[in-house]
């Protein structure tokens, strides 16, 4: 999950989720970086809408807000 957290951090901070970014965040956290995993993650994220993926989570976690039909 460290790789995912690194990507989320970059995404949330408005930074590009690229190989350099993910690697440097992981290194700063003291994680020994596996370049292939970083590449895999970055490539896979091209087809993933992070905002959408985490919006679902937020919905599940906070139904009070999300579900309220207003």
């Amino acid at each position: 999950m460290e790789y995912v957290y690194a990507a989320l951090l970059l995404h949330k901070a408005g930074k590009p989720v690229d190989e350099a970014g993910v690697s440097s965040v992981l290194k700063a956290a003291g994680v020994e970086v596996n370049e292939a995993r970083v590449k895999a993650l970055v490539a896979a994220l091209e087809g993933v809408n992070i905002e959408e993926a985490i919006a679902k989570a937020a919905f599940a976690a906070a139904p009070a807000a999300a579900a309220a039909p207003a």
Binding site: M1, L8, L41, A43, A44, I50, A53, I54, A57
Partner: peptide
């Protein structure tokens, strides 16, 4: 790379 699983991981991490 299983994108569905990856999406799931992002959702889980955010959760």
């Amino acid at each position: 790379v299983d994108e569905v699983a990856l999406k799931g991981m992002f959702a889980q991490a955010a959760g």
